[in-house]
Simulated assay, not measured.
Amino acid sequence: MLSNVSPTVSEAWYNRGNALRNLGRTQEAIASYDQALKFKPDGHEAWYNRGIALGKLGRNQEAIASYDQALKIKPDYHLAWYNRGNALDDLGRFEEAIASYDQALKFKPDKHEAWYGKACCYALQGNIEQALENLQKAINLSPDEWREWAKTDSDFDGIREDERFQALIQ
């Protein structure tokens, strides 16, 4: 009988977690996602949203572990790959971040945020060519957004004076 109840109970905990996260009550949201996962351990969205909440608290290593759990269940979950890349980027693990962004792009090639994330990682590594190439792709997909972001994003400070970078953000 419990198996008939579990999805509903899991869903209630999951929805509670989302509501708490939206209210900025992040720690409580994580606890709710944990409860949802007790009833439905294969809930990829609960793992994913748990990762988002952990990331908001700066607990990037734990966030990565949550994204990894979501990806074990749903390997083509581009949002989990993308946010995993962000957490790795925040930890300065640029090669791993780029690999995660690449996975997100494998499943959603027009994920302009992932192209931008890759550009940032490459810029922080001093790889100007790859930074510019990926920034160009992000700008092609969402010109107003990424051109403006790149103008002030400190990730590009190392290449800011490059003429090609200047041309891209004009």
Rank of each mutant, 00 (worst) to 15 (best):
E11P: 02
W13L: 00
L20Q: 14
N22Y: 00
N22F: 00
L23M: 14
T26L: 08
E28N: 06
E28L: 08
Q35K: 12
A36N: 02
L37N: 04
L37H: 04
K38D: 06
E45I: 04
A46N: 09
A46M: 09
G58A: 02
G58R: 07
E62K: 01
A63R: 02
A65S: 12
A70M: 05
I73L: 14
Y77K: 09
L79E: 15
W81G: 10
A87D: 14
A87W: 04
L88I: 03
R93D: 07
F94N: 08
D102C: 11
D102W: 07
K106R: 14
F107A: 14
K108L: 08
K108R: 12
K111R: 14
W115R: 02
W115V: 01
Y116P: 01
A119M: 05
Y122G: 02
A123L: 06
L124F: 01
N127F: 13
E129F: 15
Q130K: 13
A131E: 10
A131F: 14
A131L: 09
L132C: 04
L135F: 13
L135Q: 07
K137W: 08
I139P: 01
S142F: 13
S142I: 02
R147M: 00
E148F: 13
E148T: 12
K151F: 13
D155G: 01
D157R: 06
G158M: 11
I169T: 03
I169E: 01
